[in-house]
């Protein structure tokens, strides 16, 4: 009787659970399986189990190590430093700015965030090209110009990701700053604490949970950026902006090594899962 009631109550969960098992858990399990095989894209009847061979090969592969390094640079520059700091700065300035300025600036920054990934890629591609807007401005200021997508591709795609992702941090931090009671900051101001000291000793400690949340989500989002880099540089020139998702794609499809590509994917998934777990600990929600 009780069991039947429980089952009836759980019935509405079935469509969602079925979809999640078939199309999310299934591929993840399959990923964990083919990462240990030598599956290839073409002309192979069946694949065989190779153990940790793919992983061993990866850590000896200079192209893989290069991708790991570029992913680190990309994540630290665009997510930790760029989106996070700029988002916090914008949110803090917005607390003091007049309303019309706040609306206009918020609108522009959020538009960059809402735009489809590929469109954002094209806009920033045009911006950084040799004939593009950035060089036009540098020219006007009599500063040396260069072909950014060729000389500093990883910096260009990092800036693109900052352009695209800052709005999220800005929204998270705006919400967090709004919850700090006015009395606290005013009291500190009357006591003579300057802007930077107030930020460091009062504001930042009070929003530390939001900082943690925001860093985790930014990092996870940045780790899986594909379209933006693909549109701007295809991972090139050479492999100088080839982060792990692009490396994984190249190995699996241009070099037909699905097994190897999936091993890289599994590593990315494991790193993502670790971040997820840290994030959940930070939240410590009472679900």
């Amino acid at each position: 009787m009780r069991l039947r009631r429980t089952l009836t109550r759980a019935l509405p969960l079935t469509p969602a659970v079925a979809l999640l098992l078939l199309f999310l858990a299934g591929p993840i399990a399959y990923c964990a399986y083919i990462a240990f095989t030598d599956l290839q894209l073409t002309g192979q009847a069946h694949s065989s189990f190779v153990g940790f061979e793919n992983f061993r090969a990866a850590f000896k592969d200079d192209a893989f190590l290069n991708a790991v390094w570029l992913t680190l640079v990309f994540t630290v520059l665009s997510s930790l430093v760029g989106q996070n700091t700029l988002g916090l700065a914008l949110a803090a300035l917005m607390q003091r700015a007049s309303k019309p300025v706040r609306t206009v600036v918020g609108g522009i920054v959020i538009t960059a965030w809402v735009l489809p990934e590929v469109v954002a890629g094209f806009l920033l591609y045009a911006f950084f090209r040799r004939e593009g807007t950035l060089n036009a401005i540098l020219d006007w200021l009599h500063l040396p110009t260069q072909n950014w997508l060729f000389t500093l591709p990883i910096l260009a795609v990092s800036f693109a990701n900052v352009w695209r992702g800052t709005a999220f941090s800005m929204l998270v931090y705006s919400a967090a700053l709004n919850e700090i009671p006015k009395e606290i900051t005013e009291a500190a101001e009357v006591d003579g604490a300057g802007g930077w000291r107030r930020m460091w000793h009062i504001t930042l400690p009070m929003i530390r949970r939001s900082i943690g949340t925001n860093l985790m989500l930014n990092t996870l989002q940045t780790l899986s950026v594909f379209g933006l880099i693909w549109v701007m540089t295809r991972g090139g020139p050479g492999n100088r902006s080839q982060t792990l998702p692009l490396f994984m794609y190249e190995q699996a499809f241009q070099k037909s090594m699905i097994g190897y590509g999936t091993a890289v994917a599994l590593l990315l998934l494991v790193v993502g899962s670790l971040f997820s777990l840290v994030y959940m600990r930070l939240l410590r929600t009472e679900v």
Binding site: A265, M280, V287
Partner: peptide, 26 residues
């Protein structure tokens, strides 16, 4: 409820990009 929701929250954060190659193969 709790384990289910925690699993859901965990899945929310997974980088979907990473599983596209196995999804293709599947």
């Amino acid at each position: 409820n709790r384990p289910f929701l925690l699993t859901i929250l965990f899945a929310t954060c997974l980088p979907i990009t990473a599983i596209m190659v196995p999804v293709y193969a599947l």
